[in-house]
C-alpha cells in the first residue's frame, strides 16, 4: 500500500531521475533548489505529464509505465497548486463541489458534502464568495477542501502556504496535519519553508543532493 515513483521525470529540456516511496499517512517532504525538479515530479505523479521512462505505481497498479498511462482525471490524485487555481467563475462552495460532481454526485448532494468539507477546514463562512474576494488563507483552505473532496488516494501540495501570511501558517499546518497524518492518504509536500517540512513530514527527500 504505497505510492512508488521510480523513473525519469522530464519537462521541456529538463530531466532527472527520481526515486521515492510514499506510505499512507506518512507525508513526504520534497525539498531542493529551484529547478531541481520538485514541481515536475508532482506533475508526473498527478498525471499532467508523462514520465520519460520508468514507472509510477500506486498499491501495485501502474499509473505510468512503458505500456500503461492513467490520465489525470482517472488517477484519484488531488493537488493543491502553488497558485491555488480556484475556478474564478464559481463560488467557494461550487469549487469544492466540482470534484464531487465529476464523480457523479447530484448537485444537491455535492453541495451538502462540500459545505461539510468547508466547515472541516474552517472556511464555511466564505462558501458563497468568489475566489477573487478571498484572502490568501481563506483561498488556501478552500483549495485544500476542493482537493480532498473527491477522496483522493494521493494528495500533492506544491508550496501550499506560499500565499498565506506568516500568522496564519501555524493554524493551517495543524489543520493539514490533522487531515493527512495518520489518514490513508499518500501525500507529498513541496515547500521552501523548513517549518512546513519539519512540522508536516516524516520523510524528507532532497532533490538537490542527488541531482
Amino acid at each position: 500500500m504505497s505510492l512508488v515513483v521510480d523513473g525519469v521525470v522530464a519537462r521541456g529540456a529538463f530531466s532527472r531521475v527520481v526515486s521515492i516511496s510514499i506510505e499512507p499517512g506518512r507525508p513526504v517532504g520534497l525539498v531542493g533548489p529551484n529547478g531541481s525538479g520538485k514541481s515536475t515530479t508532482l506533475r508526473a505523479i498527478a498525471g499532467l505529464d508523462r514520465l520519460a521512462s520508468g514507472t509510477i505505481s500506486l498499491d501495485g497498479s501502474v499509473l505510468d509505465g512503458a505500456d500503461a498511462f492513467v490520465p489525470a482525471e482517472l488517477r484519484g490524485v488531488g493537488v493543491v497548486f502553488q497558485t491555488m487555481r480556484l475556478f474564478p467563475h464559481l463560488t467557494a462552495l461550487d469549487n469544492v463541489a466540482f470534484g464531487l460532481r465529476c464523480a457523479g454526485a447530484s448537485r444537491h448532494d455535492a453541495r451538502g458534502q462540500a459545505r461539510r468539507l468547508l466547515t472541516s477546514v474552517g472556511a464555511d463562512h466564505v462558501a458563497d464568495r468568489r475566489p477573487a474576494t478571498l484572502s490568501g488563507g481563506e483561498a488556501q483552505r478552500v483549495a485544500l477542501a476542493r482537493a480532498l473532496a473527491p477522496s483522493p488516494r494521493v494528495l500533492l501540495l506544491d508550496e501550499p502556504f506560499a500565499s498565506v501570511d506568516a500568522d496564519s501558517r501555524p493554524a493551517l499546518r495543524a489543520l493539514l496535519r490533522s487531515l493527512v497524518v495518520g489518514s490513508g492518504i499518500c501525500s507529498v509536500i513541496v515547500s521552501h519553508d523548513r517549518a512546513d517540512i519539519s512540522d508536516l513530514t516524516d520523510v524528507v527527500v532532497d532533490l538537490g543532493s542527488a541531482g
Partner: peptide, 26 residues
C-alpha cells in the same frame, strides 16, 4: 492552469471544456 486543476479533480475532456474552458474565456 484551470483546465489542469479540473482534470486532477476528475473532470474528463468534455466537462473541462464546458465547465472550465468556456466560462474562463467568456
Amino acid at each position: 492552469d484551470l483546465e489542469e486543476a479540473a482534470r486532477t479533480l476528475g473532470a474528463g475532456p468534455v466537462r473541462v471544456f464546458w465547465q472550465v474552458a468556456v466560462p474562463s474565456a467568456g
